[in-house]
Amino acid sequence: MDNTILSSLKTNPNKNVSVLGFFSNYPVKEFYIEGNSVLILGKSDHLWAHISSSSEVELSSLLARNYMKTKYYFSVEDWMIPIILSHGAVDWIMTTNRFILEKSIFIDLPKFNIVKIDKSYAQFIYDNSDYKDYISVEYIKDRLCKDISAGIFVNNILVAWGFTHDDGALGFLHVLEDYRNKGYGLDILLGLIQMKKKEKKPIFGNIVPDNFASTNLVTKLGFKIDCKTSWIKLK
């Protein structure tokens, strides 16, 4: 990433945590600057537009010149959505609450044996996902290969798992229905947090508002809500 842009993003690391995380994992394809605003394109499962801006005027100008580059918008703030939608009809929007865990918060070690998940489990994970409209088997394989993951096996069956999204956010937390209420979900999260702490990387996650179980879990561990953020695909 261009050093000037990187320095600008790092002046507000919490606000730009998703942008910084994404481009630590994937290369910049193109970038465009308008005043103090920047539009950066990078590809994981799709070619995503990442925006860092505090100006409606600057963002409007950026998109007027570059909206045709992609239909996918990554982790955008509420005020940005009408500007984005002025350039196309919405196919889908996924809105989440971002939670961040400060590095100083003490976290227990997991009690169960946590293992790295092989990419051969990607199809199984996809088949059990509640978010099939937003992910793919190839995306899951990519994330399992590129970053940390945590799985719990019972009788050689993968019963609980979690890993990271393309921006480094903790996610994909899932426990098979027959194995819930045993503490597996908590331990998956504890394992991922310990891995993040060891790597000295930001610890954050995005949770859809109606996922009360995950929201309660991260809140009990000391995560604080940071902002609301959305992913958008235009038709």
Rank of each mutant, 00 (worst) to 15 (best):
I203Q: 03
T4I: 13
S53E: 11
L62C: 09
T70W: 02
V175F: 02
K141Y: 01
L101V: 01
D45W: 05
K201A: 11
W79H: 10
S104P: 00
I5P: 06
K233G: 03
L20M: 14
P82Q: 05
L170F: 07
K111P: 00
E34Q: 11
I117W: 03
H46Q: 15
T4S: 13
K116G: 04
P202F: 02
A150K: 10
A64R: 15
A122M: 04
F106C: 03
E30S: 14
L176D: 02
L144N: 05
N36L: 05
G21M: 08
F172A: 11
L217H: 07
H50Y: 12
Y32D: 05
I105Y: 01
G205T: 13
G205S: 12
K103L: 00
V38Q: 07
Y32E: 10
I188E: 01
F172S: 13
W79I: 06
A169D: 09
Y26E: 08
L85W: 01
F223T: 04
P202G: 08
E138M: 09
I93Q: 14
L6F: 12
D142K: 14
K224R: 12
H46K: 14
W161H: 10
F124N: 08
G183M: 12
V19H: 06
A169Y: 04
G35T: 04
V218G: 02
I148V: 11
F124I: 09
I207S: 04
V76H: 10
V57R: 08
K132I: 07
K182Q: 12
V28K: 07
H87Q: 03
P202M: 10
I207P: 04
K132H: 08
N216H: 15
W161C: 12
L186M: 13
S120V: 10
R143Y: 00
Y26N: 15
G191I: 03
K201L: 14
L59M: 12
I105W: 05
W48T: 01
V218R: 01
L158E: 09
E102I: 00
I107E: 01
P13F: 02
Y126T: 03
L9A: 04
N216P: 01
L109W: 05
V154M: 10
Q194D: 10
D133W: 00
L101Y: 00
L217Q: 10
K43N: 11
T96M: 09
M1Y: 09
Q123W: 00
E199Y: 02
E77D: 14
S52H: 15
I84F: 02
L158C: 10
G183D: 12
E177G: 01
L39I: 05
L176G: 01
Y134P: 06
A213V: 15
I193E: 00
W231I: 11
K198A: 13
K198R: 08
R98A: 03
K119L: 05
V90P: 02
G35Q: 06
H165R: 11
F124G: 00
Q194I: 06
D187A: 07
L234W: 02
M94A: 03
D210H: 14
N216S: 15
I225C: 10
W48C: 03
Q123Y: 03
F23S: 13
K228M: 09
S7W: 00
V76K: 05
I225V: 06
V28I: 12
N12K: 13
W48N: 11
S60R: 06
Y26I: 10
V76W: 06
V115D: 07
D91C: 04
H50Q: 11
